[in-house]
Design a binder for these strands. Structure first.
Lengths: 233, 233
DNA sequence: CGTGCCCGAAGTGCATGCAATCGAGGAGAG
DNA sequence: CTCTCCTCGATTGCATGCACTTCGGGCACG
């Protein structure tokens, strides 16, 4: 566990809070994160806020620019592709590792989580996204491999960022039923089925999200103008 | 690029230096890293040293204990297994991505690197290990996927730690010829061959390294005693 | 000779202060 | 009216200071 889990750790508190804000899209890509404001908001000094930002930066969630205000990262389309690629591999590895090895209480916890997802389905979209993400992290944590948990967490968070950037009408994309199928395959110990289910699950999420750079509505004014830019002759 | 590459970044300097010291086994697992000493050594204040340690901790290279001196992590045998598992997957992903897509200058750089490995083969073992590790990182960087680079770097560094812990007579394990075969397969665009070569390459490294916890000579007295610990009735 | 306690030294946790840097907005020239 | 330059507030970069915690050794005691 790279990051202190104990509750009296100020830095950990801030990181968790910010991660959650990002995952629920309360903080959109590009949002500014001044050290003072953060410190004030969380009742700590700038030193601590700064440190927390450093941690988040190392997770690829915020971007630190020298002498400039830190911002929530704005993943490029290429970044998004890469991240989904790796996610695919890692999550396949996860299901391969845990298929047929889950205790009944673990299965129960997974099912309870999916139930929570279903209940939240009509609620605010942000909550749905968070729960769907947490499902995958929960899966990862059942491998008992801290490294896997860390990487999948990071990647899942960054996928949320991507989602909030590229897939506007995030049409309740959670795929709750897919989560259920995966649980069942895992319970049956059918690793191959679980892997292919996970594969198609992620694939559908990715495809719904990554609909090509949607030339208009490009992030940056410069990007938008790029195609129109022709040198005067 | 999660960590500032520009040379005037104090934190980056410290991190790079420490990573290198770890990879070359100048800093063994368990080595203490007091903030003051680090600060003094690098000509910065404790604040910066502390920040750097935080970054290294997020990479899983050092362990931060509250109110205690930070130390270089001592991976457990289980950690080592997990890490090699993930490494296997990620490196297979890498060769799949770059097989047949390398420019001739990239191939040349790879070959030059292996040549350097061969030259260093008789030199200090630490250098061999570093070069072998850098070869894999170089491969990763050719995917142009910052995330992959980051993860493989982290994992490769941690493998070095593991090596220095479990494989005592690190018998010039570099496997230079295997690196060459991999390059050739990549050049030919034979993704499958490259993947299986990489697989067996890593497998042999892992097997040479992970020779089971060698029950005697257990790291910690507490670990040795653990199986004998039964609560009094 | 082994065991438990206590205290000084060492080290961390965190806030604050000051210098350096960035950038937004206004003044002035064209 | 527009463009450029310059200044000042906002913000970061970093060192230092102080309180608190832990460590390790000496001393009394069994």
């Amino acid at each position: 566990m790279p990051e202190a889990p104990n509750s009296k750790d100020k830095v950990g508190m801030i990181c968790r809070a910010l991660r959650r804000a990002i995952i629920e899209q309360a903080l959109e890509p590009g949002a500014k994160l001044p050290e003072d404001s953060l410190g004030e908001r969380f009742g700590v000094s700038r030193t601590i806020a700064r440190y927390a930002l450093g941690q988040l930066a190392s997770e690829g969630l915020v971007e630190l620019r020298r002498n400039r205000i830190a911002v929530v990262v704005t993943p490029s389309w290429q970044d998004a592709r890469d991240i989904f690629d790796i996610r695919m591999d890692l999550e396949r590895l996860i299901v391969r590792k845990i298929a047929g090895k889950l205790s009944s209480s673990q299965i129960a916890r997974l099912k309870a989580h999916v139930e929570a997802e279903r209940e939240a389905h009509d609620g605010p979209n942000a909550v749905s996204i968070r729960l769907a993400t947490e499902f995958h992290i929960m899966l990862a944590s059942m491998t008992n491999s801290p490294v896997l948990v860390r990487y999948v967490s990071e990647i899942a968070y960054r996928c949320c960022l991507t989602l909030s950037l590229f897939s506007r009408p995030h049409s309740s994309e959670c795929g709750i039923s897919e989560h259920i199928s995966i649980i069942e395959a895992l319970q049956d110990g059918d690793a191959n089925k679980a892997m292919s289910l996970m594969h198609s699950h992620l694939d559908s999420v990715a495809n719904r999200a990554l609909v090509e750079p949607t030339p208009a509505r490009g992030r940056d004014l410069l990007d938008v103008l790029a195609p129109y830019t022709e040198e005067a002759t």
